[in-house]
Nucleic acid binder design. Structure first.
Length: 611
RNA sequence: GCGGGUGUAGCUCAGUUGGUUAGAGCGCUGGCCUGUCACGCCAGAGGCCGCGGGUUCGAGUCCCGUCACUCGCGCCA
């Protein structure tokens, strides 16, 4: 017989009754009874019940064997009595009577119980990640992650893509985040950057004629963490294809995404086809370029209703709208009927505190004398006709509530978008059974106004191809943009995939023409030397015959997160870092020996004390 | 960098208006129990109430500071 096992702990069935087997695994749970000690023995595959009788010479040892110790037992498989069958277990029809018992590795008292589904502090979970990973949910998530990646690979290969490995030690890439830098020993004073994405490499692969590239690509960005963004590193299904339009990229990747979500989504509905929402429309309806389409209401721009203070009796919004600002309304269906004033106040408080906004106005709508009215300040003194028109525009009725986000256009929409999500969550209006609501967000602007530097700058990926109407070239469009306003009107072949309010990926048809590239950078205030210096590899390549090409890069971690039904990205990553970008298990980052620094020609300076 | 929340037993949490010896469940240790499967029952051990300072006759509780974790903003496809 094998040294450790003849069967796994998930394998035994009635058909094995009578045979002698050997099992190894972790002591999941023990139940001591007067006549018998029951041990739930667990491995990767499942749980089997092992019975130890007091007559066994190892009874005391088994009884004292701590939870999560690793043991090897041999014994006969017995059928359970009908009333003793456990239908919860695949192996519940049988049990094993232990005839030998060996502790392979005894466990100390646990900092984190493996049994059960209770929640535990992140710090302990991360420090003892190997214990956390033994737990059922996390264990299954990680397995699914592997299966999802496998499925993504198969689907891409089936469409004629080839997987390539691009360099990890490379030069700074253009994604706009902070780089992780790696000092070069052989080139003192110089640094590699870890790739924020294999952006330039994949485009170079197109120039090299490979036609269809993909990679489960590690990406590195030195930015602060969020619940859905782990610090430092993440994986993308990075892909690029030649001689394609935006439509071709959509037709290629949409079935991959939909297919994987159907395969692993546990039967939940998957949107098909993905609706396409222009960026501008997405901002106006949802206050975000990552709309959660499960939420059954949209924003309205109600600025015009507040322009004339004499008709509204509400000076604050009149002042804001006259100054070019916006008032954006967020419906709260049923909130007046179902919620107390505290709910409305709490959202205002949330806006002030968490969103650091001036506040969130609100009005509760009630029936009075056949009309819908509100006693709250924002709408209290409205002219009846104007109020009626406002409510009609928004589709609001008595019993509903409405919030108002007011301020500069971008600020107002941003708060409104966040408020839409919060109102929906607080009122429990997000239909969790709606499944996976995908959409494409398209027609991103090429440029945006950089308030800090008072200039036009790239809004997203600078390598996107500007959109041009029929009969005009991208160069024509750029040349005609002789004012800031016109520059800001230029759209790009840039797109995102969003699912349930989570941004899964972004991509673009690339700008493969060197002259258009220089011009695009010039508009954003960068001279040709910037392009030549920062993006040398790519711009040089474009001078020797570059195919039109485009691609996209869906985030693998976020896909798995959605499929696993968690809103914490750490739940789908094997060994995540904490919010401060520290690996508590491996103690990284860490100081290094002086000799190592010397070899790298690096000196560290003390952190300046805080004032 | 900024803001919110949290911090009490190994873990999850309660702890009222500032008032006697800080509690419960899980886990752990010991005992009991004729078959459990979240077994049950009895007993026990286990506390720098995050840390430092202050107010007070008296602080887990109030005030100030600080640290840690976490969520969000900034940042970031």
């Amino acid at each position: 017989m094998h040294a450790f096992r003849s069967h796994t702990c998930g394998e035994l069935r009635s058909s094995d009754v009578g045979s002698t087997v050997k099992l190894s695994g972790w002591v999941h749970r023990k139940r001591e009874h007067a006549n018998a000690l029951f041990i739930d023995l667990r491995d990767h595959y499942g749980i089997s019940q092992v019975v130890v009788y007091p007559t066994a010479e190892f009874y005391e040892a088994a009884k004292r064997c701590p939870s999560e110790s690793v043991i090897t037992v041999t014994g006969e498989v017995l059928a359970r009595d009908a009333e003793a069958v456990n239908k919860e277990l695949d192996t519940g029809d049988v049990e094993m009577r232990a005839e030998t018992f060996l502790i392979e590795s005894q466990a100390d008292p646990l900092p984190l119980p493996v049994f059960g589904e209770q929640e535990y502090p992140e710090e302990i979970r991360l420090k003892h990640r190997y214990l956390d990973l033994r737990r059922d949910t996390l264990h299954k998530n990680i397995i699914m992650r592997g299966q999802v990646i496998n499925s993504l690979r198969s689907r891409m290969i089936a469409q004629g893509f080839t997987e390539f490995q691009t360099p990890i030690l490379t030069a700074s890439s253009p994604e706009g985040a902070r780089d992780f830098l790696v000092p070069s020993r052989q080139n003192p004073g110089k640094f590699y950057a870890l790739p924020q994405a294999p952006q330039q490499f994949k485009q170079l692969l197109m120039v090299a004629g490979f036609d269809r590239y993909f990679q489960i690509a590690p990406c590195f960005r030195d930015e602060d963490a969020r619940a859905d963004r782990s610090p430092g590193e993440f994986y993308q299904l990075d892909m690029e294809m030649s001689f394609v339009t935006q439509e071709d990229v959509f037709n290629t990747i949409e079935p991959v995404m939909a297919g994987v979500f159907e395969e692993f989504g546990g039967g939940k509905a998957v949107t098909a086809p993905f609706p396409r929402i222009p960026y501008k429309e997405s901002m106006e309806k949802y206050g975000s370029d990552k709309p959660d389409l499960r939420i059954p209401f949209e924003l309205s721009d109600v600025s015009e209703f507040f322009l004339d203070e004499s008709k509204t009796g509400f000076g604050i919004f009149a002042k804001i709208t006259k100054g070019g600002g916006k008032v954006i309304a967020i419906p709260a269906p049923g909130a007046t009927d179902n919620q107390s004033r505290k709910f409305f106040d709490s959202l205002d408080k949330w806006a002030k505190k968490e969103m650091q906004a001036p506040g969130l106005g609100y009005a509760r709508l009630k029936e009075e004398g056949g009309a819908v009215v509100s006693q709250d300040p924002a709408l209290k003194n409205f002219e009846p006709e104007l109020l009626k028109a406002l409510l009609e525009k928004m589709g609001l009725k008595a019993g509903d509530g409405v919030f108002f986000s007011a301020g500069k256009k971008n600020d107002a929409y941003k708060l409104a978008g966040a408020a839409r999500n919060k109102v929906a969550a607080d009122l429990d209006l997000i239909d969790e059974d709606a499944g996976f609501k995908f959409c494409w967000v398209v027609d991103y602007p090429m440029y945006e106004w950089d308030e800090d530097n008072k200039k036009v700058d790239f809004s997203h990926n600078p390598f996107s191809m500007p959109q041009a109407p029929e009969g005009k070239s991208a160069m024509d469009v750029l040349l005609e943009a002789d004012t800031d306003a016109k520059k800001l009107d230029i759209l790009a072949y840039q797109y995102d995939i969003v699912c349930n309010g989570i941004e899964l990926s972004s991509g673009a048809i690339r700008n493969h023409k060197a002259d258009v590239m220089y011009k695009a950078f010039e508009i954003a205030g960068y001279g040709p030397e910037v392009v030549d210096d920062k993006f040398a590899g790519m711009i040089n390549a474009f001078k020797f015959g570059a195919p039109p090409h485009g691609g996209i890069a869906p985030g693998v971690d976020r896909m798995v997160m959605l499929l696993a039904g968690t809103d914490t990205i750490r739940d789908v990553i094997l060994f995540p870092m904490n919010g401060q970008a520290q690996d508590l298990m491996m103690n990284a980052p860490a100081e290094v020996d002086a000799s190592a620094l010397k070899e790298l020609n690096i000196k560290t300076v003390p952190v300046a004390p805080k004032d």
